[in-house]
Design a protein around this nucleic acid. Structure first.
Lengths: 363, 363
DNA sequence: AATTGGTTCTGAACCGTTACGGTCCTTTCA
DNA sequence: TGAAAGGACCGTAACGGTTCAGAACCAATT
């Protein structure tokens, strides 16, 4: 049986006895040829099964892919599991649909150092969301000659950036807890580097953390509590590689095992905090009466639980990143956008029970 | 100032005095050249700022894009707003990350008939998720010479399909309600066609619905209740274009306004059902004592609310679609996969208060 | 009659890469 | 020592388009 090679613009032109230019114009510039000829071209195309100009060949010539790439240092599916990531993506998708641009989720398996996926991505730009600053995928993106926006990353000075003041926001939250009288605290945080460490964190590791967001949140905490006279090096900080409620629970358990006297459990995300609350409940600790628990992000589930947290505009962050990337006329790169956060005092934080500090502030 | 044209594989080869093939091999087939030369190529590339082979040009030549496209007939951001869509996408993303493939979200604004986005998508295949069967974007996808998997669509016979037995599952749910004694019911369903109709639906419109899923769910209901002696044409069916809880609430309100005597409110999705429950509560109707409410999908929020519903494996659906698409062994195409569903009897369904017969004589 | 202007179509030059089928030279082995 | 094998590299031909500067033609204007 004869395997017919698929029709191309050239074969169509040959069949019609016109130039390739004319066929191309039939699709892209209808005003450049007579309506009759255009109809004839399109009809013949249908008859020959020509599916229209090949998008890849077109991209090569026009230097436009019509898509932006999203890099996040997790398995692709994480994008649809984590509430904050989902919010970010929704915002990014909003910006993309405004511009009629596609959104390519680039697979970047953190286990492997395989950056081929970044090299293979046919995109007009990249958004990089919360990856460690030493991620080889990030390095590969920065080498690509396309505009890039990093999000929740340190300011690289060379590419656009969107983020929040993690350090300041956490400092403010810490001040709230300090004001309530908390001095003996524990912390549960997300992964600080690419290597798995489900355990306590040394101050060194905190300081050298490769995740900008986590590093700054911890640093905000350290600053506030140090100012309040707390020896930060004695504060138990449990790190968890996976970001889910189970991790929050086990992290809380580890901290509470180390120091059952703590009056507040500060988590660097709402998901972890919700997990921590289940662990508190398991131990018969009432929140906030027996222990204060706080989060970070302002996700829906946290809101419903009345979590004391820092709300950050995840959707706006995504949208801002997309707009920055797709805004072509702005020639003032690199730009840096900081979004506002809001301290949410819920009902999971209160003064420590019978704490000595309570006396100093009075009712 | 001299605008340096970006380096290409050819210019790099010229600089090095080797052939383009060799430079290409340095990147793609390290075994084809000596390690020293390879190092020299890579070093020179770095020096010249050559970012590695252009992905688009490579795609053109190799006829591989390294990505699959996802078409869903909503604004892009809907993918991150709807729980069922999120689950589907997570499954699809899992399949993609297994294959090291990217996932391109193709913008398909349902308002405009602009299918250019489909034409511009540089992908190796498409997954089409729950679009109306007359959607021009779907037609455009089917014209592209790449493998396609449709999901929650009628079996087209020409491309792979993944789905569930919507009709059978809803029939079973209806039988459950009939068994409880419900005869006087109302329905809230999702959009049935591309035109916005936030109101009641005629049997004709139900029958001609362009959304396969909704058509079959309604048809399953109609069959079961007709068998139970209910005149389906008299059953109020409220359609809502937007799929969210507000729609569920307003749809329920419309149905309840039309017939306050109904004993069960059947919704074609959990999201609508959750909205319907808020409306019931607003009216002081206790669920299930005063009214039964049911959903479809089996989303987390519904589970937490104890919703009576049909659970469908949304994640598995996405994964199956991805696997079908990425499975290169295409001897057996087209394939059709039906996934199992499960009737979940929650605590939002019960026998009508005072029995069905009493209803006929009024309260 | 020459000029102008507009429409319609063409030819050729790219876009940057990889597949294919070699060549050439060095080893290896009987 | 001659033949076969294998490593290293190369030249050519696509891959399927878009773009731009004209050419050819015709009608209207000067």
């Amino acid at each position: 049986m004869h395997v017919r090679r698929p029709a191309t613009l050239a074969s169509l032109a040959a069949e019609l006895g016109v130039s390739r230019t004319t066929v191309s114009n039939a699709y892209n510039r209808p005003d450049q040829l007579s309506p009759e000829l255009r109809r004839r071209v399109l009809d013949t195309a249908r008859r020959l099964g020509y599916p229209g100009p090949d998008p890849v060949a077109r991209s090569l010539r026009t230097r436009k892919a019509g898509a932006v790439g999203l890099l996040l240092t997790e398995n692709l599916s994480y994008a649809f599991r984590d509430p904050a990531a989902i919010g970010f993506l929704e915002g990014l998708a909003l910006a993309c649909e405004d511009a009629g641009t596609g959104l390519l989720l680039v697979p970047a398996n953190p286990e492997r150092e395989d950056v081929a996926s970044v090299h293979r991505a046919g995109v007009d730009g990249f958004v990089v969301y919360s990856v460690p600053d030493d991620d080889p995928h990030l390095a590969a993106v920065l080498e690509r000659p396309v505009p890039t926006v990093v999000c929740d990353q340190p300011d690289l000075g060379t590419v656009d950036r969107v983020g929040i003041d993690d350090r300041g926001a956490m400092y403010e939250l810490a001040k709230h807890l300090i004001g309530l009288g908390h001095r003996r605290i524990g912390v549960v945080c997300m992964r600080l580097a690419r290597d798995r460490n489900d355990g306590f964190v040394t101050p060194d590791r905190q300081h050298a953390a490769h995740f900008h967001v986590q590093r700054n949140r911890l640093s905000g905490l350290a600053e506030a509590f140090s100012e309040a006279g707390v020896d930060w090096s004695q504060v138990p900080v449990a790190e968890r590689f996976d970001h889910n409620m189970v991790s929050g629970a086990s992290g809380a358990a580890q901290v509470l095992d180390r120091d059952p006297q703590i009056t507040a459990l500060i988590c660097t995300s709402d998901v972890l905090a919700l997990g921590a609350m289940t662990e508190a409940a398991r131990r018969g600790l009432r929140v906030p009466h027996d222990i204060t628990v706080t989060g970070f992000d302002g996700i829906r589930a946290g809101e419903e639980a009345g979590l004391t947290t820092v709300r950050q505009p995840v959707l706006e962050k995504g949208r801002a990143a997309g707009k920055l990337l797709l805004d072509t006329n702005e020639r003032t790169r690199p730009r840096s956008v900081n979004l506002a956060t809001e301290l949410i005092i819920g009902n999971t934080s209160a003064a420590p029970r019978g704490g000595a500090d309570e006396r100093w502030f009075g009712p």
